[in-house]
Amino acid sequence: MDTRFDELLDFPCHQTFKVMGIAHETLPDQVVSCLQQHAPSDDYAPTIRPSSKGNYHSVSIRVKVTSKEHMELIYTELAKLELVRYVL
């Protein structure tokens, strides 16, 4: 992944990741578990919003990222989760 995050952001910083996936009760836990592996924190507080038809959930979560590579790694790892369809 070759992004311009380092040109646009001053690291370390907080970034909100929005993960959209299949509406399943374990989606928020899977997102937090993935983040704990790559950016450990005790205060993750995901916000979950269902889609209009209820088939998908959007999980927004604020994460402290330390570098361009760290941010790219988080995007990549979240996208690998089975229930996830998009990471913004």
Results as ranks from 00 to 15, higher is better:
L35G: 03
S60G: 05
R49T: 06
T76M: 13
R49P: 00
C13W: 08
N55C: 09
P28T: 01
I22R: 06
D2C: 03
K53N: 15
Y86V: 11
E7F: 01
P46V: 04
N55P: 08
V19M: 02
K64N: 09
I48G: 01
S67G: 12
R49E: 07
I22S: 10
V84W: 03
M1Y: 09
S51R: 07
L88M: 12
V31Y: 01
L88W: 14
L81T: 06
L8R: 12
Y86I: 11
F17L: 04
M20L: 10
E25F: 02
V65F: 08
H14T: 13
T66L: 04
Q15M: 14
A23P: 00
M71Y: 07
E72N: 14
L27Q: 01
L78G: 02
T47N: 06
V63F: 09
Y86H: 11
E7K: 12
V65P: 03
K68Y: 09
L8N: 12
D2R: 06
Q37C: 08
E72S: 12
K64Q: 15
Q37I: 04
K18Y: 00
T26H: 09
S41T: 05
Q37M: 11
A79W: 00
M20Y: 06
H14S: 12
D29Q: 14
Y86C: 05
L81I: 14
F17N: 02
H57E: 11
Y56D: 07
Q15F: 15
R85V: 06
S33G: 08
C34Y: 02
F11D: 03
E72Y: 09
K68N: 15
V19G: 01
L35T: 02
V19E: 00
D2F: 07
A39L: 09
V19I: 14
F5A: 13
R85Y: 04
Q37K: 15
H24K: 15
V87M: 10
F17A: 02
D6W: 00
V31T: 01
L78S: 04
S60K: 07
I61K: 03
T76F: 15
V19S: 01
P50E: 03
T47W: 01
L73T: 15
T16R: 11
V32A: 06
R49G: 00
E72V: 15
P12Q: 08
D2Q: 11
E82Q: 10
R4F: 09
D10I: 15
D42L: 13
S41F: 00
P12E: 08
L27F: 00
F11Q: 03
E72P: 05
S52K: 14
R62I: 09
D42G: 12
R4L: 13
K68A: 11
I74D: 03
A79P: 00
E82Y: 07
L73M: 14
M71A: 07
T3H: 15
S67M: 08
D10L: 13
S67N: 13
S33Y: 08
Q15V: 14
A79M: 09
S52H: 13
K18S: 05
K53R: 10
S51E: 10
P12I: 13
V63G: 04
H14L: 05
R62G: 04
S60N: 10
D10N: 14
H24P: 00
H57F: 10
